[in-house]
């Protein structure tokens, strides 16, 4: 909860604040939880005045109530469904990416996750004039590859430059970098400095697997998820993250090597839609399956092809 400060209410001047701090009343919540009489005794303010401050703070800092109809109308007018630029993927996603959702792409190492991300970022930048964020955690983003993909798809030079300028790349090293980045994007969207529909994070495990303390790891995942939800729901963006699948033979009764999803149980339930990408052996084709979704048909599958011009 926010700390009390003089800007909150004219009566909360510095002597009053100092008196409150001396009695361990630091935050808005502390203030509201303390009995009014007690505050009167500490601050020498009138009972009525304290009541006024209290009311003001509650109004300002409580969660906002919104009625269903206006919320619905906001969602309807501000949401967008945009194409991924890959026809077969669009068809299993029923049109493409829907803002307000967190999508996860998971797959075994070297199954084409980064290839898919590069294609997505290219397609989305190509089909609109908005910015697209590409947050890169292990230096996988390659400008040369992106350029090669654009050249192979016979885009003219001016357009290539235009597309590549729309794509904003953030190379992060730690989870703190990532959280700072997400808050920065949030502030830029809040002040309407940039417009965007898609944020890609490739990939999550490198940020979290390097933290050995489990409780710290999950604390930071939670913080990241909170700001992701705000970006997705309130600022109407779609977030695509990649995650690793690992083969495990723990259930040795079957030959099935479906794999284990990284980052643990809590994260497992965060993405609204999970896509599993699987590469066929000795072929440039991949299959993409909807492994989990609250809206789409689970198990829907499509085959895509990795070409020099990206994934089609």
């Amino acid at each position: 909860m926010s700390r009390l400060n003089p800007q909150m209410h004219p009566l909360l001047n510095s002597p009053v604040l100092e008196a409150l701090l001396a009695k361990n009343i630091y935050t808005v919540l502390n203030f509201i939880e303390t009995e009014i009489k007690h505050i009167v005794a500490i601050t020498n303010l009138q009972y009525k005045e304290v009541l006024g401050i209290r009311k003001h703070l509650i109004n300002k800092y409580a969660a906002v109530t919104r009625d269903g109809v206006s919320y619905y109308n906001e969602i309807i007018t501000k949401s967008a469904l945009f194409s991924t630029g890959i026809k077969r993927l669009d068809s299993i996603l029923q049109g493409g990416f829907l803002t307000g959702n967190i999508y996860e792409i998971c797959g075994l190492p070297a199954s084409g996750k980064t290839q898919l991300n590069l294609t997505l970022v290219r397609n989305v930048a190509q089909n609109s004039i908005l910015n697209v964020y590409y947050i890169d955690t292990k230096n996988d983003f390659s400008g040369r590859k992106l350029k090669a993909v654009l050249d192979a798809s016979k885009t003219d030079e001016e357009h290539v430059k235009q597309i590549m300028s729309q794509i904003l790349v953030k190379k992060v090293d730690t989870v703190h970098d990532l959280i700072n980045t997400l808050y920065e994007i949030k502030n830029l969207l809040y002040t309407k400095t940039i417009k965007l529909r898609l944020i890609i994070i490739d990939s999550l495990p490198p940020l979290f697997y390097s933290i050995s303390d489990f409780s710290k790891r999950y604390g930071l995942i939670t913080t990241m998820v909170n700001v992701m939800h705000v970006l997705a729901k309130e600022f109407h963006t779609a977030i695509v993250v990649t995650n690793v699948l690992t083969t495990s033979y723990e259930n040795t009764s079957t030959e099935d090597i479906s794999g284990k999803i990284g980052l643990g149980k809590y994260w497992y339930n965060v993405p609204n839609t999970r896509l599993t990408i699987k590469k066929f052996e000795n072929s440039s084709e991949c299959s993409i399956i909807i492994a989990k979704s609250n809206r789409l048909l689970e198990g829907a599958q499509c085959n895509v092809k990795i070409t020099d011009a990206g994934i089609i």
């Binding site: 400008g143 729309q166 808050y183």
Partner: peptide
Amino acid sequence: QLMKPPVTKTALEVYNEEC
């Protein structure tokens, strides 16, 4: 420093640096 996000570069800038 603690709150500073890494610099934003456009893909074009990244490409030029790589080259």
